[in-house]
């Protein structure tokens, strides 16, 4: 065979290998995004589970703050019901829940006996950590989405992404301004 046939074969082989590599890379990134999303879910569920316990504990000491308890419980239930919604809608509801929780813990500030309660202290640590885990998993999710979106939009991998119809990931933004400024719950 003539030499140029070999060159064509070699170029075609490299092209095919590159397509396989780029496709697999995109799939890998998309799986990381999916996994990161599941991780946020786990942490948000953990927060839903902690809230009834927390409300019960605080109730024992602060009986007159009914409105605050109701708000937290309502926000929790709404967020839980929306758990199958997209990242944008969820971000909003989770932000509201975070705010309601912040108010509950601010109320707890006024009760020194409550702050000395071992059960409350343990719950506090769990809640702080869960809030952190939520924001770290959100951070990792957003980083992964950024990586995926970059690959989908940048040349040359955008060609492959277009061929196999990869969709851009959606960032998990917290829409409530107050939540963005004070994502941590103050216990001091």
């Amino acid at each position: 065979m003539a030499w140029w046939i070999w060159i064509i074969i070699a170029v075609a082989a490299i092209l095919v290998l590159w397509i396989i590599g780029a496709y697999n890379g995109l799939i890998g990134l998309r799986n990381i995004v999916k996994n990161a999303w599941a991780q946020i879910d786990v942490q948000l569920k953990r927060r839903y589970d902690l809230i009834p316990n927390l409300v019960e504990t605080v109730k024992g000491y602060a009986k007159h703050e009914r409105e605050v308890f109701e708000n937290v419980t309502k926000a929790r239930n709404m967020a839980q019901q929306a758990s199958s919604a997209g990242a944008g809608e969820r971000g909003k509801l989770e932000g509201e829940l975070g705010m309601a929780l912040g108010r509950l813990l601010a109320v707890a500030e006024a009760y020194p006996e409550l702050k000395a309660n071992q059960n409350f202290l343990a719950l506090q640590e769990e809640l702080t950590s869960t809030e952190n885990k939520i924001s770290f998993s959100r951070q990792f999710y957003n980083d992964s989405v950024l990586n995926l979106n970059n690959k989908i939009q940048m040349f040359p991998s955008n060609v492959i992404a277009g061929m196999f119809n990869f969709k851009l990931g959606e960032f998990f933004e917290v829409t409530v301004e107050a939540e963005r400024q004070a994502p941590k719950v103050s216990f001091s």
Partner: peptide, 16 residues
Amino acid sequence: APRLYNVVEEMKIASG
């Protein structure tokens, strides 16, 4: 060691 364990888990999540 709840605080330590939680912080390790937080960083495990942050690093993926």
